[in-house]
Structures are given as structure tokens and as C-alpha cells.
């Protein structure tokens, strides 16, 4: 079974083995509003925990998406180019941004569990 972790910046990473699928949380897409463009990294790109991984643009503004952990991009979600609104419609599913090979799974311990993240969202909204 996959485990899901969240960052304070509202990225999630769904972990299966040493692979992680990264996207933005339902709360994040709700705050952004209609997503109109997503800029994704190329496969092979090295990501650093907390560093820029992608850019998501709503009608109003561009926002950075940070890497929740360090690692290497395996695949970006090419379907978002034609249908960026998928990020709004299914953020935890078809609206994923990228898959990555996790460099050090110990970094996951710095992230929030699903329950902790739900509490966190409640505390800021």
C-alpha cells in the first residue's frame, strides 16, 4: 500500500518503494483556483528537498511547487500540458505533477501524515 505525505507548502508525495508521485493537495488547488498552465521538469532532473520542482499557474498568478524530498525526476505528467485543469479536478489522482526516485527515504520523516496535514489545513484556514 502506498503511503502519502504532505509538506507545509501543500505538496504531497505518494510513496511506493523508492518511487514518489508528487502533486499539490486539494487544499492547494482550491486556494490557487483555475489552473491554466503547469511547467514541469524534464526526466533526469535532480531535485533538492525544498527546491523548485515545477511551476503552477492559475488565472491570477504563478506559484512554485517545491520538491518535498530530494531525488531524481523519472517522469513528468505530460497530460497536464493539454489539460492543466486536471490539477483542479483530480489533484490526488490524474492531476499528479511528477514521479521521482527518492534519494533518501529518511527525509520523509520531516513531512506530515495525512491526518497531521488535515489538522494543519484546519489550523490555517
Amino acid at each position: 500500500m502506498a503511503d502519502i505525505f504532505y509538506s507545509k507548502e501543500h505538496e504531497y508525495i505518494r510513496v511506493e518503494g523508492d518511487t514518489g508521485t508528487v502533486g499539490i493537495s486539494p487544499y492547494a488547488q482550491e486556494q490557487l483556483g483555475d489552473v491554466v498552465f503547469v511547467e514541469l521538469p524534464a526526466a533526469g532532473k535532480a531535485l533538492t528537498k525544498g527546491g523548485e520542482a515545477a511551476v503552477v499557474e492559475s488565472v491570477k498568478a504563478a506559484s512554485e511547487v517545491y520538491a518535498p524530498v530530494s531525488g531524481e525526476v523519472i517522469e513528468a505528467n505530460a497530460a497536464l500540458e493539454a489539460n492543466p485543469a486536471t490539477v483542479n479536478e483530480d489533484p490526488l489522482g490524474a492531476g499528479w505533477f511528477l514521479k521521482m526516485r527518492i534519494a533518501d527515504k529518511a527525509e520523509l520523516s520531516g513531512l506530515m501524515s495525512e491526518a497531521d496535514y488535515a489538522e494543519y489545513v484546519k489550523s490555517i484556514s
Binding site: 498552465f37 511547467e39 499557474e57 504563478a62 500540458e81
Partner: peptide, 10 residues
């Protein structure tokens, strides 16, 4: 200004 492609310029 009309950008080519999908990328907005702010």
C-alpha cells in the same frame, strides 16, 4: 501581446 503556446507571461 499574444504569446505562442500555453505559458502565460506576467
Amino acid at each position: 501581446l499574444l504569446p505562442e503556446g500555453r505559458q502565460p507571461a506576467r
